[in-house]
Design a binder for these strands. Sequence first.
DNA 1: TGGCTCATGTAATCTGTTACATGATTCT
DNA 2: AGAATCATGTAACAGATTACATGAGCCA
Lengths: 182, 182
Amino acid sequence: MANEKKMDQVILGLLSHEPMTGYDIKKRLDTTLRLFWNASYGSIYPTLNSLENEHKVTRLQTTYNGRDKILYTITGEGRQSLQQWLEKPVVKDELRYETLLKLFFGSEIGSEVTLKHIQEFEDKFKGELPFIKASVKQLNELKGENAHQYYRLTAMFGEKICETYIEWCEEVKKILIAKGDC
Amino acid sequence: MANEKKMDQVILGLLSHEPMTGYDIKKRLDTTLRLFWNASYGSIYPTLNSLENEHKVTRLQTTYNGRDKILYTITGEGRQSLQQWLEKPVVKDELRYETLLKLFFGSEIGSEVTLKHIQEFEDKFKGELPFIKASVKQLNELKGENAHQYYRLTAMFGEKICETYIEWCEEVKKILIAKGDC
DNA sequence: TGGCTCATGTAATCTGTTACATGATTCT
DNA sequence: AGAATCATGTAACAGATTACATGAGCCA
């Protein structure tokens, strides 16, 4: 994808909350940001390197429990660069659901197969929901740090869309079962 | 992105409904499928070429109103290939919202700027909604072709999530205005 | 006549994934 | 002892966008 590179900003954003290792960043993306962003090691580590070259982060080699790790900290320059990006209007919000695609072409394969895809889609989000709900609840009580309040708003988004998806799946299932053209 | 190439299937899917030109395909993606899929000419035309080489589509050079166009039709082989893909489980549903990212890092820039992003997000989907609602209504009445019924299900998806997004935006705005930490 | 839409295509470039490589520590 | 997790990284490759190039017909 020849889109604007956003990995820089994602990493700076995460480091704006606290110093982290590349491994930590990956974990954060796989959990907290899972619903709206993701990335692989193959893009995280090289980006950390280039950010260091641009003096937007500093590296600190440490050893914790005999384990080597490289802790990255955002610099003033990095924070400035992040803020500049945050001020700019959003360029692209993208939703790419293969499930929707397969549904759209459903007439070519019939309702039985299509139902399976819908069921899997539903199950996936039903699986997510408890964790998201737990986060929202936790973040509601925790009226502390500012960053947590913003995290809470994104978690609320996750909760809402999961619930909407599940509702929609139920409707779709009813309709597909009713027609039963297998 | 070194993901599985889905452009092939998208084009075959669209051609499974009716013969089209590359230009038509682009239009369809920009309108009907806009909410869950998109692509540029730079991927459409080369894909059409490779599909022809694999005998999954046939080209028909025509002239309509003095305008040259190449009409592509799916072959039996192409249809088979499409069906095989449709049967396979979904590999990836991806949502990538820069807006959510900027919201998540909102503490770094404050609620004033963040509110602007939320407002734009809301406006965008408020703008989409009338068209989607019109589609849904039209497709509800039109109880004809099978393919339309599948299209209708995806339009219902669009309607639901747009409404959910707008609701969520209203909540977020209230919370951000209440705290007012600019 | 000028601007918009119709219509097809290519080359350069970007961005990121996948798969591989390595090795230590912690848990069971 | 073995599996899982912690931890960092690279090279090959894929997939797609952007920007450019070209030209005809339609509408005002």
